[in-house]
């Protein structure tokens, strides 16, 4: 937090407009540079291992039009559609309890810390042995990936809520509902949504992992197939599709967070 504070305190050397231009210039420059370098390197390489950026884009377009990607996405995302909401509900519940009850927290929280630290991919074969090559197994893996960060952030959210602010709001005559709406929820929403965003990205990882290692179906299945067929452009295109899905989901979570905050502030005191 204080890092941001420090940055703001420093004297601004550039005009505001010049600065914004510079910032966006650098961003566009980097993206352009990467795309160009990729294109050039791919062509120089003979497009064997690194297909040119343009070839990847056209492969992506092609597979989008012929429905390959859509079909694979639907197949893969079934585990996400069930697993992620379950992780959110369960994770928020567990997180709230851990944040409130000291003894429960000290007894069980380390488990979620561990789940964040260990490479969850190593647990996937055990899940498959237990649940078979089924949708249930895929859902379980998605939850193993997504749940811990949701739990830990919900727990942190309960703790950050400023008790002095709550008291003050009470002193100024806010009722229970207003206190929740204007103090508790807005303060807790930040960490919770951070947890949801990281959880989303981890859930996508979990969804892909099963398909890459043990159940060659859906998007991961496409990746495995294209790799063995040596279809470079298609392999890169599907990878890009997975990354885009992740980015879109996280973007949507951002949007939902902002909407919710605005609504809460608007409907408050």
């Amino acid at each position: 937090m204080s890092a941001i504070g420090n940055a703001r305190v420093r004297p601004v050397r550039m005009s505001r407009g010049g600065r914004t231009t510079a910032v966006w210039g650098i961003r566009a420059g980097i993206v352009l540079l990467v795309a160009l370098a990729w294109e050039w390197y791919g062509r120089a390489d003979g497009e064997v291992f690194i297909p040119a950026f343009s070839s990847v884009l056209s492969a992506l377009w092609e597979h989008t039009l012929d429905g390959t990607i859509a079909e694979a996405m639907w197949l893969s995302n079934q585990s996400m559609l069930i697993g992620f909401p379950l992780s959110v509900v369960l994770g928020l519940g567990i997180g709230l309890v851990l944040g409130r009850r000291r003894l429960v927290d000290r007894t069980f929280s380390y488990l979620f810390d561990l789940m964040m630290v260990v490479p969850m991919i190593a647990v996937v074969p055990v899940v498959i042995v237990a649940l078979g090559l089924s949708l249930t197994a895929r859902v379980a893996v998605v939850m193993l990936f997504a749940l811990p960060v949701v739990v830990l952030n919900a727990r942190a959210a309960v703790r950050v809520v400023d008790h002095e602010l709550i008291e003050m709001a009470g002193a100024f005559g806010a009722d229970r509902r207003q206190v929740w709406q204007t103090v508790v929820l807005p303060a807790a929403l930040g960490p919770i949504f951070t947890g949801l965003r990281i959880g989303l990205s981890r859930a996508v990882s979990g969804m892909i992992v099963v398909e890459l290692t043990l159940i060659p179906a859906g998007l991961g299945g496409l990746l495995v197939t294209y790799r063995s067929q040596f279809a470079g452009a298609s392999l890169y295109a599907v990878t890009l599709a997975v990354l885009i899905e992740g980015a879109v989901l996280i973007g949507l979570a951002h949007l939902a967070e902002r909407r919710l905050l605005n609504r809460m502030r608007g409907g408050g005191v």
């Binding site: 291992f49 690194i50 991919i121 965003r197 990281i198 990205s201 981890r202 996508v204 990882s205 892909i208 992992v209 890459l212 998007l219 990746l223 495995v224 790799r227 470079g232 392999l235 890169y236 990878t239 997975v242 990354l243 992740g246 980015a247 996280i250």
Partner: peptide, 18 residues
């Protein structure tokens, strides 16, 4: 920040391809 949020595991097939 954005690249940190990407599911890195999805990149491994590309790496093994190269």
């Amino acid at each position: 920040n954005a690249s940190m949020a990407t599911p890195h595991i999805a990149l491994i097939p590309v790496f093994t391809f190269i």
